[in-house]
Simulated scan of single mutants.
Amino acid sequence: MMNSITEQLTFSVSLSYEAHAIAQEYSKSIPSTVKRQQVYLNTLAVYVVDNYLQCMGFETDWLCSDSHNHLAIKLMDVADLKIKNLGKLECRPVLPKAEVCEIPPEVWSERVGYLAVQFNSSLKEATILGFTTQAKAEVTLSELQSLEDFLLYLSELEIAKSPQQEHSSSLVKIGQWLDGFVDAGWQSIEHLLNPQQLGLAFKSTMSITRGQKIDLGVQLEKMSVALVVKIAALSEGEVDILTQVHPIGHHTLPEGVNLTISDQSGKNVLEVTSRNEDNWVQLEFSAELGEKFKIMVAYGQSQQTKEFEV
């Protein structure tokens, strides 16, 4: 079985003899041709997602899923896969030329999300196109969120279901971002900022950009800000880091928002403060592999600090 992750952040699997043997086993006792084909495709879809999640380091439990229960698959159109400690994910098959992912009503509840798995015409290959959290009859394929966002979503679910672990993982391993391992809670900036802000602030080409909503309380009159961090490799063992603070839902920052960078000893090394009508503030610096630093965003008596390691 060959696996590959394409540049579009989809995930393709060559469907082996084993995959088809499992699908055949699940569907063989079903008399209706249409229902038998449905179970066959559902089983292949679950097989693909199970393979993908295990490759990504998530622990799955197909045996405890409804899609493994022979009575359930006869009575319902179900293709769920249980992710340990997170919940059930629905793996929906998509035919080769389809433009929508169909989600049957019986799986509109008790699901943490829906993955679209598209097959080629020979059923020799399947590709996970993306995911949605919307429980509705049809989701157009262009509406799907990327697999990159899906992994971030699962990481956020892990944090939400294990709040006691949040403090221990508070150190952001920013050096791993370039390898595709982005810490939970750091979103694609398109989810935080409007298109006008992106056009103004992100003209430089960077390797990876992520952001996080920062709430500084009533000092900002209920206006949240986005802490945005960009990272790019400069040379072996050294990276360029650009950090910015943007308003969320407003065009400008209030005067007096402070952005500070401190080294691992706690000494402030860079600082900038917003002026009246500033659209954003930013600081740029370089850091070496293994180096730690802190980013602090403050306004009045409120402040938040994030710790990073390259």
Score class of each variant (00 low, 15 high):
Pro247His: 05
Ile103Glu: 07
Val100Cys: 06
Val39Ile: 12
Gln134Val: 02
Ser12Ile: 08
Gly180Arg: 10
Thr132Trp: 05
Val13Ala: 01
Gln176Arg: 15
Ser204His: 13
Lys74Ile: 03
Phe285Gly: 00
Asn42Tyr: 01
Glu110Cys: 14
Met2Gln: 13
Leu259His: 07
Leu227Phe: 05
Tyr17His: 13
Glu106Trp: 09
Leu151Lys: 07
Leu283Pro: 04
Thr132Pro: 05
Gly300Leu: 10
Tyr40Trp: 11
Glu190Asp: 14
Pro105Ala: 14
Ser224Glu: 12
Gln197Ala: 15
Gly199Cys: 09
Val225Gln: 03
Glu25Met: 06
Ser302Thr: 09
Ser65Leu: 03
Gly237Leu: 04
Val228Phe: 07
Ala21Lys: 08
Ile128Leu: 07
Glu110Tyr: 12
Glu277Ala: 02
Phe181Lys: 15
Ser12Ala: 15
Leu115Ser: 10
Gln303Val: 00
Trp108Ser: 04
Val78Glu: 04
Val46Ser: 09
Ile174Gln: 13
Leu9Lys: 11
Ile103Cys: 06
Asn268Thr: 12
Trp186Ala: 01
Cys64Lys: 14
Lys294Phe: 13
Lys267Ser: 13
Glu236Gly: 00
Gln38Ala: 13
Val48Ser: 05
Leu144Val: 09
Asp66Thr: 00
Asp77Asn: 14
Ser121Tyr: 02
Ser274Gln: 04
Lys306Leu: 15
His246Ala: 06
Lys173Met: 06
Leu157Ser: 00
Met223Trp: 06
Leu9Asp: 14
Ile295Tyr: 02
Leu141Cys: 05
Glu143Met: 03
Asn85Glu: 09
Gln196Asp: 09
Ser168Cys: 03
Ala137Tyr: 04
Ile189Asn: 11
Asp179Ser: 11
Tyr299Trp: 04
Gly180Thr: 04
Thr260Ile: 14
Ser14Tyr: 08
Ser262Lys: 10
Asn120Gly: 03
Val78Trp: 01
Glu309His: 04
Arg210Tyr: 02
Lys203Phe: 10
Lys292Arg: 15
Leu234Thr: 15
Lys173Gly: 05
Asn120Leu: 02
Thr133Gln: 11
